[in-house]
C-alpha cells in the first residue's frame, strides 16, 4: 500500500522532468544550450499564479475537460508497477486495456470542453486527435493481445520477466514497435503532431490548449508531461521484461529496475533525436505509419 502511494506521488512530482530532459536533448542536438531541466516546474509556478479567463459561452464542461484529462493521465501511473514490488497482486486491477480507456476518457472530455466553447482552433485539433485514435485503437488492442498472450494475463502488475532458456521473443519485439508508433500518435509527438508549434495548420494537441489559460492550462501541461512519462516508462518496462532475467532477490531486482531506468533515459534521448530529424507528416499521410503499425501488430500475434 505504502509503495503504491509513494510511487503515485513520485510519478506525479517527477513527471515534468521528462519534458525537461527532452527539451535539453533537443537543444543540444541543435547546438543550443537549452533551458534548465527544471524549466517545466518554473512554467508551472508561473501559470499557477495567473488568473483564469473563462469564455462567455462556456458551461461547466469547459472547466471539467482539463480536470478530467489531468486526473486520467495521473491514474495512468497506476498501470506501472511500483519500484520495489515484484510479487504482483492479481486483483490490483491494473489492466493494460485501461490505458486505451483512460486516454479515451481524457480525449472525450477535452473534445466536449472545446466544442462547448465553440472556437474553431480547439475543435479542429481535437477532431484530428480523434482521427488518430480511430486509426490507432485497433492496432493498440492487437499489439496488447500479443503482450497479453505472452504473459498469460492482462494485468500489468503481473507481467512476468524472461524465464531461463527462453529464446528471443520476436513477436514481442514487433508488438513493441507497433506500440511505439501508437504511443507517438496518442502522445501527440512527431511525425503525427508537432508539440512545439502553435500554428493552427499543424497542430492537433496544441489546439485545445489554446482555449485555456492560467491554472487550467497548467493542468493540461502537467497532464501531458505525465502521459509522456507513462508512455516511455511502459515501453521501458516491456523492453526490460524482454531483456532482463527474473528478479528473485534484492540485487537482481535492483538490476532489473536499473535496466529499466537506463532504457527509459535512452528512449527520452531517442525521442529527442527523432524529433530533431523528422518533420511532421501531412494530415492524410499519417495513414501510412498506422498501416505499418497494424501490419507489425498482426504479424506479432501470428508469430507469438
Amino acid at each position: 500500500m505504502a509503495k503504491y502511494v509513494a510511487w503515485m506521488a513520485a510519478f506525479f512530482f517527477l513527471s515534468p522532468l521528462t519534458p525537461g530532459i527532452l527539451h535539453r536533448v533537443k537543444a543540444r542536438l541543435l547546438a543550443r544550450r537549452g533551458p534548465s531541466l527544471f524549466q517545466p516546474y518554473r512554467d508551472a509556478w508561473k501559470l499557477l499564479h495567473k488568473g483564469m479567463v473563462i469564455p462567455e459561452s462556456a458551461t461547466f464542461l469547459y472547466t471539467f475537460g482539463p480536470i478530467v484529462a489531468f486526473a486520467s493521465y495521473w491514474v495512468l501511473g497506476y498501470l506501472h508497477p511500483p519500484f520495489s514490488t515484484s510479487a504482483a497482486s492479481m486483483t490490483s486491477g491494473a489492466d493494460v486495456v485501461l490505458i486505451a480507456y483512460l486516454l479515451g476518457l481524457a480525449r472525450f472530455m477535452m473534445a466536449l470542453a472545446v466544442l462547448d466553447v465553440g472556437a474553431p482552433f480547439g475543435a479542429m485539433g481535437s477532431s484530428r486527435q480523434f482521427f488518430f485514435q480511430a486509426l490507432a485503437e485497433p492496432t493498440f488492442f492487437i499489439a496488447l493481445s500479443t503482450l497479453i498472450a505472452r504473459n498469460h494475463t492482462s494485468n500489468v502488475h503481473s507481467f512476468s520477466t524472461r524465464q531461463e532458456g527462453m529464446h528471443l521473443e520476436v513477436g514481442l519485439l514487433l508488438a513493441l514497435f507497433a506500440l511505439v508508433i501508437v504511443f507517438l500518435a496518442e502522445g501527440g509527438r512527431l511525425p503525427f503532431d508537432s508539440p512545439e508549434t502553435h500554428l493552427e495548420l499543424t497542430m492537433a494537441e496544441g489546439g485545445p490548449a489554446l482555449s485555456y489559460s492560467g491554472p487550467l492550462l497548467l493542468l493540461l501541461e502537467w497532464g501531458n508531461a505525465m502521459r509522456l512519462t507513462f508512455f516511455l516508462l511502459f515501453l521501458a518496462h516491456v523492453s526490460a521484461i524482454i531483456l532482463s532475467p527474473v528478479p528473485v532477490d534484492r540485487w537482481t531486482r535492483l538490476w532489473f529496475w536499473g535496466v529499466e531506468g537506463f532504457i527509459f533515459l535512452t528512449l527520452v534521448v531517442l525521442l529527442g533525436v527523432l524529433e530533431v530529424h523528422i518533420g511532421k507528416l501531412r494530415l492524410k499521410r499519417v495513414v501510412a505509419p498506422f498501416a505499418l503499425a497494424l501490419i507489425l501488430a498482426i504479424t506479432s500475434v501470428l508469430l507469438m
Binding site: M8, I67, V68, F70, A71, S72, W74, V75, Y78, L79, M90, T91, S92, G93, A94, D95, L98, L102, L105, I148, H152, T153, S154, N155, S158
Partner: peptide, 17 residues
C-alpha cells in the same frame, strides 16, 4: 490466465476530479 479491474483506479480518478 487472469485479469482484473478494480475500484482503486476508478476511485483515484473520481477522487482526483
Amino acid at each position: 490466465y487472469h485479469a482484473s479491474i478494480s475500484l482503486i483506479p476508478t476511485l483515484l480518478l473520481v477522487g482526483t476530479v
